[in-house]
Design a binder for these strands. Structure first.
Length: 852
DNA sequence: GAGCACTGC
């Protein structure tokens, strides 16, 4: 640090007057403070109504229901409903609900449980003249299903959506004072529980898709089990697609279970051995060029193999498959469970196209790379490569095709649709006209390595339940066929169900939510889970919350932690948002927080990858930051939208308009929440909170404040830079990052949003930051044990400088912390006025190191 | 010399 800077920073810090000159020359930021639009509480406020008006309402509801049900317009609807397997169970179901507080219902696809059971309850309550009092809630894990089920039931009742039946998801709802049956996402209900822990006024709660073992659903049922004794009048119905209902029944003191048979068309299934016989395809081992036993050789080479693949390699093919041809047996010998054989997939597609009747083909693959490679292969295929006869569509959450209706549309006759998809087609996206499913039995799955505090995303064998679900995708409109490209022996050895999400994920957000619901200590609460997570994973989460200052040493919420509870975000991202509002970078903090929380708006097109990378690079400029690229892309979109150029802008820059719109709406939600907790006073206008929004050094410092302790050290290794973290040592920049192609960085550290182990340990979305950003906005400053300099992150990071500089930094940091603490204790406190000098000093120091 | 399962407040 030059003495000149030292003097200037010192002066700023000491003077109460700020240097207005540079500050006022910043461009002003347009006011985009939104109107308050926070969601109405779920509970139905009937308490204000008098008893007689309620009676009248109940009578009116009943009369209307009877009238509509007798009308001719619903005849077709009625006969459809009566054909569903659930219809036969109606009286049994209603009786069970009446007699038991908890009921577990299992039912396969097509049985009508999701559309019929909540509807039975509604009809029953209305016809028993309890219509005015009933308030039925049904949770869904996904937004689209909440909407589509609510729409379907409204249609079945001959009503408009939002009358008796409505939905509520984040940032979107269709409901009214008349709504008696509400579909909402599980996340919405969990947020609602913070304000209304007893679910006051709710008469029936149905929790759907519990077999998926999502984190929210697992979390919700712990809360509900504790709530039931306090709410003896509340009825709870758990709905599962598979017959693992026993586990849930046991969890709820042996609650009765009920099974509804499913209805789908039959789907024939063929395993690898039969597919090989049919297609005459021969699998070549990678080791066929070597002498000797290829399987043994492969075993020696690849020691980190999954147990299922290993199991199959140990069996004797000739005795197990003696009825199969020699060619099939040779192929089974050569088959590898760890590597997909795209030639086999191609041969299977070709076989269907040559030998089977029309109908769409759905291929399940694990990721972008496989989809892309198979697409290339098929385009070069003599038969399938003919675009006049075949429509081949990739389907991946990050590809621009994901929102195209082509996927759902039926192609013209004589043209066959072939969809190459990830797991997205297993439950999120349903393509009705699929008749053939090809499944190689794998999916990328997250896991959490608690020892190394490391999230992993690795391909692994799916569960039997998933394999069943994938097969079912072929039988929605007519009988279908499922080709499984793995041996039946592998299928038999697959786990019954996928590991619960709560056992596969970092837990900091969940732990914060538990604290906000005042559910006791995190550890004792989570022990009550259906499957309690690893105590080490819980410990890691609590330690992280302590490190960022959300929990104190007694594991109680700090004032900062209490604010974070009010913001539905990962605690790190929530902290970034608070820091952005405190240090007058509100707009960038809102944008970056919303995109990190939701989804990256950049799409990954299959053919124009390089151009897409270049677009991202353009937005990043020389910032060395993926977060700045996000920010600039969003600002560009806003500008393009204002000038009516949205579509072209998104197309040119490889951005998803749908994602950007949702990010925009989330910004508004966050802004309202910041206003609710008093951090932002909307009446003062946006400019007050955006003094430094165009100062990239300050924005990067705010990123540092939020993302800490996600820090890597950049160390120069010859002509390149190597990256190191405290937890796992060497890491790589993710190849999709704008920082991936850079050899040398201007600044010595990176902060990152996420670290994931795939083929290597990658940091995604990184930002290059300075010493000063870390010193002023990172972790606590600890005097080095050696006596010289400052330590951070338990001594992993060390900073040395002259005594006077260190003294200056400590002083400035102390002042910043004071401002921060005051604002957190007293949200109405005006940092922009009273902290003007201190903040300006920090900015001056941040600028002293680098000019971007 | 590289790579990007999927939900949700």
């Amino acid at each position: 640090m030059s003495t000149d800077i030292e003097r200037r920073v010192g002066n700023l810090l000491n003077s109460s007057q700020s240097t207005g000159a540079t500050l006022s020359s910043l461009p002003s930021i347009s006011a985009d403070l939104g109107q308050k639009q926070s969601a109405a509480p779920i509970k139905y406020v009937s308490s204000r109504q008098t008893d007689s008006s309620k009676e009248k309402l109940s009578v009116a509801l009943k009369e209307r229901q009877e009238l509509v049900q007798a009308s001719d317009s619903l005849k077709e609807m009625k006969s459809f409903r009566e054909k569903l397997p659930a219809f036969k169970m109606k009286s049994e179901f209603l009786k069970a609900v009446q007699e038991n507080q908890v009921l577990v219902v299992s039912g396969e696809t097509g049985c009508g449980k999701t559309t019929q059971l909540p509807q039975f309850l509604l009809e029953e309550e209305i016809s028993c003249l309890r219509g005015a009092d009933c308030n039925i809630i049904c949770t869904q894990p996904r937004r689209v299903s909440a909407i589509s089920v609510a729409a379907r039931i409204s249609a079945e009742r001959g009503e408009s959506l939002g009358e008796a039946v409505g939905y509520q998801i984040r940032l979107e709802s269709k409901r009214s004072a008349e709504t008696r049956l509400l579909f909402c996402t599980t996340g919405v209900l969990l947020r609602q529980l913070v304000q209304d822990p007893d679910l006051t006024g709710v008469s029936h709660l149905l929790v759907d898709e519990i077999h998926e073992r999502g984190m929210n659903e697992d979390f919700l049922i712990i809360i509900l089990r504790d709530l039931l004794p306090r709410r003896p009048d509340l009825r709870l119905i758990l709905m599962s697609a598979t017959i693992n209902a026993d586990m849930f029944s046991k969890y709820f003191a042996n609650a009765p279970t009920m099974h509804i048979p499913g209805f789908t068309y039959p789907v024939a299934e063929h395993f690898l051995e039969d597919v090989l016989e049919k297609t005459r395809y021969s699998i070549k081992s990678d080791f066929d060029n070597f002498e000797g036993n290829s399987r043994r050789r492969r075993k020696q080479q690849d020691s980190k193999k999954d147990p299922l693949t290993e199991m199959f390699e140990d069996i004797d093919v000739d005795t197990n498959y003696k009825n199969y041809s020699l060619g099939v047996r040779k192929s089974l010998e050569a088959w590898s469970g760890s590597q997909i054989d795209l030639g086999l997939v191609e041969a299977t597609i070709e076989y269907i196209c040559r030998n089977e009747a029309g109908g769409a083909i759905l291929v399940f693959l694990t990721g972008w790379d496989e989809i892309s490679k198979l697409l290339d292969k098929l385009k070069g295929n003599n038969l399938v490569g003919d675009p006049s006869k075949f429509l081949i569509l990739p389907l991946h959450g990050s590809m621009p095709t994901v929102n195209q209706c082509e996927i759902f549309e039926r192609p013209p006759p004589n043209k066959r649709k072939i969809v190459l998809a990830t797991n997205i087609a297993e439950s999120s996206i349903t393509i009705d006209d699929v008749v053939y499913v090809i499944d190689w039995g794998k999916a990328k799955e997250t896991s959490y390595d608690a020892l190394n505090k490391l999230a992993c995303l690795l391909p692994s064998w799916i569960s039997k339940a998933s394999a069943h679900q994938r097969r079912g995708r072929a039988g929605r409109v007519q009988p279908g066929v499922c080709y499984r490209l793995y041996p039946k022996l592998i299928h038999d050895a697959m786990p019954q169900y996928q590991l619960a999400e709560i056992l596969r994920t970092p837990l900091q957000e969940l732990c914060l939510h538990i604290k906000s619901l005042q559910l006791g200590t995190v550890g004792s609460f989570l022990e009550k889970a259906l499957q309690p997570p690893d105590p080490l994973a819980v410990k890691n989460a609590i330690e992280l919350l302590k490190t960022i200052g959300a929990l104190d040493e007694q594991e109680e919420l700090t004032p900062l932690g209490q604010h974070l509870c009010n913001i539905p975000l990962d605690p790190n991202i929530g902290k970034m948002l608070l820091m952005g509002s405190i240090f007058q970078c509100l707009n960038p903090a809102l944008t970056i927080a919303a995109s990190l929380a939701y989804r990256n708006p950049f799409v990954l097109p299959i053919n124009r990858k390089e151009e897409a990378d270049a677009a991202k690079q353009f937005f990043a400029g020389d910032s060395c930051s993926d977060h700045i690229a996000l920010l600039k892309a969003f600002e560009g979109w806003k500008e393009a939208k204002r000038s009516g150029n949205e579509k072209q802008f998104c197309w040119d820059n490889f951005l998803s308009p749908a994602t950007l719109r949702l990010i925009d709406n989330m910004r508004m939600q966050f802004l309202n929440l910041l206003s609710d907790i008093g951090f932002v006073d909307k009446s003062r206008g946006a400019n007050v909170y955006n003094q430094y929004s165009h100062d990239l050094e300050m924005v990067c410092a705010i990123l540092c404040a939020g993302l800490y302790p996600n820090v890597v050290q950049c160390k120069r290794r010859g002509k390149r830079t190597a990256f190191y973290t405290k937890e796992v040592g060497k890491v790589d920049i993710h190849p999709a990052s704008v920082n991936a192609g850079i050899y040398l960085f201007p600044l010595p550290y990176m902060v990152y949003s996420e670290k994931v182990k795939t083929t290597s340990i990658y940091i995604k979305d990184s930002t290059n930051i300075s010493d000063y950003a870390l010193l002023l906005f990172g972790g606590n400053l600890v005097p080095s044990k050696s006596g010289e300099g400052i330590d951070m992150l338990g001594g992993y990071l060390h900073f040395s400088a002259s005594k006077s500089v260190i003294e200056l930094i400590r002083k400035l940091r102390g002042e910043l912390d004071k401002l921060l603490n005051r604002k957190i204790e007293e949200p109405g406190f005006d940092v922009s006025a009273e902290g003007k000098g201190v903040v300006a000093a920090a900015v001056e120091l941040l600028h002293s190191q680098v000019m971007r």
